[in-house]
Amino acid sequence: MKPLQSAYWAVGCWLVLTLVAYGLDPLFRSGRHNSMEKRYVDQIVQDFEIQKTESYAALTRQQLIDRWLPLANNYELVPASLTPVTDRSPTRSSALLDRGVESGLRSGLGVVSESGIVGRIVDSGDGWSRVQLADDAGFVTPFVDEDGSRGILSGSLFPQVARLKMRLDPMTFSLDERLFTDGSGGIFPAGVYLGAVVEPRTPIQNSKILLPLTLGLAQEVIVFLPIKTGSSR
């Protein structure tokens, strides 16, 4: 085989290995219906899903506002839809919102879902915002535990897992201890659920904290927009 042929073979094999990793096998199993049938079925499924999603989103937005309104005295609540994306930097974790500067969203605002924390907006444009998820290694937020002890939590290099960044006292966690935001920093109000300690370890920095399981899923979320002094809600 000529060297150039070998080169093209190598590129082909490399591409195949990559595609295998993406898990494309479901595509090869389809093909029992003709294209007209498939298009018809896809259309029906899409229409049904759109109707269901729209009614569900409206319901969830109202439920979300009702849930977070008692906590958010100094914040305006902006509902949005979160779409998970694969961050192009392999160690980072992010998602996109369907609202941006036109709704007053800007860098630094906190995002929560029905289950608790989601992350923080890092960039905004017209009709979009990029959210740094709470399990991103660069995410940091102050917390308070059930006994009132404070500390600083950070994301980690693993999905849906957070680590302790700093705490002065006590230097142990108990199993299933729940952590909440303490309201400092002006990003989140106090009382937003952050996560639970699933593996308390010594030293305490090695403890594993599990963030809300719906963290990176497509869902309705609320953005906390701080109310400027002197303006009405």
């Binding site: 994306v85 961050d87 192009r88 930097s89 974790s93 992010s94 960039d123 990029r130 740094q132």
Partner: peptide, 9 residues
């Protein structure tokens, strides 16, 4: 360019 666009990095 690839890593800077579409990332929080």
């Amino acid at each position: 360019v690839y890593r800077l666009t579409g990332s929080v990095a």
